[in-house]
Structures are given as C-alpha cells and as structure tokens.
Simulated assay, not measured.
Amino acid sequence: MEYLPGRRPALSAAALTTAATVLTGLALTGPAGAVAPVATPSVSATLTVAADGTGTYRTVQAAVDAVPANNTQPVTITVKQGTYRGLVTVPANKPNITIKGLGSAPSATVIVYNNSAGTAGGTFNSATFFAYGNNFTAENLTISNDYQENGTTVDQQAVALHLNADRAVLRNVRLLGDQDTFLVNDKTRAYVVGSYIEGTVDFIFGGGTVVFNNCSIYEKRSTGAPITAARTPASKTYGMLIYKSTITGATNNTTQLGRPWGQDAQVLYRESSLSATIKTAQPWTDMSGATWQNARFREYRNTGAGATVNGNRPQLTDAQAANYTPQKYLAGTDGWNPI
C-alpha cells in the first residue's frame, strides 16, 4: 500500500477487530504512566422475561444471570404476565436491579416455588426469592411460597422473600406464604409500600429495618398467631414500622401483633387500622425466653376494633412519635429517603 502524506493507511476488517480486542482487554497508560481502569461491564438497561419465548429470556433467573457482576448502572428486568415456577437469587455482587411485572395487577405475574426449612436445610434457605444486591426493587408482582403446612410443628417454615439488601423497595407487591413469609434480614433497610403480605406464624420476621406504608397484612390462620417476630439488635434504634396500614385476619380476637425473636426486638404499629382479629387484651406475647415487656414494642394512634388501649399495650407519646417516622427509620447514615 502506498502511503500518502496527510492520510492514514486504511486498516482491514481483521486488523480493526484485533485492535478493538486489544484495546478492550488492556488498560491504557497515560502520559504520566498511570494506568486507567478497564470499564465495568454493562448490560442493556432493560431485559424482558416471558415464559412463552416472546422476551429476551424465559426465566427471571436467566435475566438476573445476564447482569454483569458489580454492575454500577440500574437494570430493569420486566416480566410478562404469567406464572414462573423456580428459585430466584439476586446475588450481593449484582446491585441496582429492578424486577417489574408487566401485568395489569401484581396477581398477573407470579414467581413461585415450593420450599421449606425441612427440604432446603433451614429457614433462611427456604425462600422462593433471595435478594442480596443493594438497591433492589420489586414492582407489580407476586412472590409466593406454596408449600403447605402439614400440621406438624417441625420444619414448617417456608419463606417467600428472603431480603438481605440495603435500600430495597417493594412497591405494589404481594408476598404469599404460611409460616415465615417475609424475612427482613440484618443488612436490610427496606421500604414496602402499597403491598400485601399474608401468612400464619411470625410471617414478618428478622433483624433488619423495614417500613410498611399503606400495606395490607392478613393473618390467614383461623386460630391466629403472632404477625411479627423481630430480631432487632440492641445497636439498632429502628426495627419494624407498620405505618398507616391495615391488619385483618380470618377470625376475631386470635391474632397477636408480634413476639420478640431476641430481647431487643423493636416493632411499632403506627396510625394503622387494626381489625377485630387482634387480641385486644394481650396483643404481644413471649418467645424462646424473650419477654414482650422487655422488648421495644409500641403502638401509636391506631384505630379499629383491635386498637384498644390498656396496660398490655404500650403507647408512644406525641413527643416520642416525632422520632419514629418512616424517614427516621430508613435514613441510616447516608440519608436514604425513598418515600
């Protein structure tokens, strides 16, 4: 090839491909000898899941697997309506993922599996959905564990969602299960809004911090049971806040607000509607040597047939309530405010 002054020689397609490969795989050295980092892998901002093959992936897990590890950009996984049976795990090294159902209601898009503590090796392993990546969001879908209790008291825990992700948001979501439906694990700060949670025993539990805002919580066992089992560490000011939500159940005067899974458990029912399902005379109970009186259990300005005030129902004062708002629960040290 003749070289003409002022014109670079043309490169073949093969040479261009080779050059691109080299530049992509190697760091670049600047004038001062500093090495610039190789860019973090990225992925399309939106992935689509459809069981019938009309999306990019057929399963939710396949779409999660396609997100590069340590991805710094938000990724939305849209899920077409239908039932998706199988386990899903969003690992800790895949933050910033939103999973959004495309149906007309949360009931139109269902992620479901049949799992239990007895079959999976313990309560924490018994979930249908495991979310560990920070900044996780779920919208407009159902996460269900359809394991059915068989009447024994051993290994009946069957978690729908095991959430151990900081700054998580659940919006317009249904969480369905029996015993131990929703695990809010220690790392978690979560905002749950406009959602529905149902179960039987301790079906909202764990050591994380969570705010339920404008949610519906349903105790489906006819004999009732505790709704919450918080395991808030003493080092945490805030555990669980049920705020402006509605509590209902299958039968009257059978359901307890909670019990302490650890002596420092912190739970507040605030400005919520408590139906007649709540045991009015004694709405808190003990658990495994931890007494409810020594836990951080409170109510504030609740209404409804189950909202009676008596000596077994500690209440916040107005002055105390100013420090127990949704924003205070979620702020942490970084000022997070998803509300």
Score class of each variant (00 low, 15 high):
T48I: 12
T17G: 10
P68S: 06
G25T: 11
Q157M: 11
N213H: 13
A34C: 03
N214A: 07
Y269N: 05
T142R: 01
T17P: 01
L257I: 10
N134W: 04
G208L: 07
T46C: 05
R301D: 09
T78N: 08
R189W: 01
T333N: 13
V90S: 06
A331Q: 13
Q148L: 14
S235V: 14
A15C: 04
P283K: 03
A307C: 02
R313V: 15
L26F: 06
M240K: 13
V184M: 09
N172T: 12
Y84N: 05
A32C: 02
G82L: 03
T251A: 15
N310Q: 03
S222V: 08
E271D: 10
Y238P: 06
S222I: 08
Q73V: 12
A168F: 01
T54F: 00
R85W: 00
R270I: 00
S275N: 13
A34T: 14
Q315G: 07
K94M: 01
L257F: 00
S222P: 01
A234H: 03
Y3F: 05
A321Y: 02
D286C: 07
A321G: 06
R7I: 15
I242E: 09
G103T: 04
L102S: 09
V201N: 15
P9H: 04
A158K: 09
Y329T: 09
S144T: 10
L241P: 11
A322V: 12
N140Q: 06
T89G: 02
N125H: 11
T78Y: 00
K279A: 11
N135K: 12
K100T: 08
A117I: 04
I111W: 01
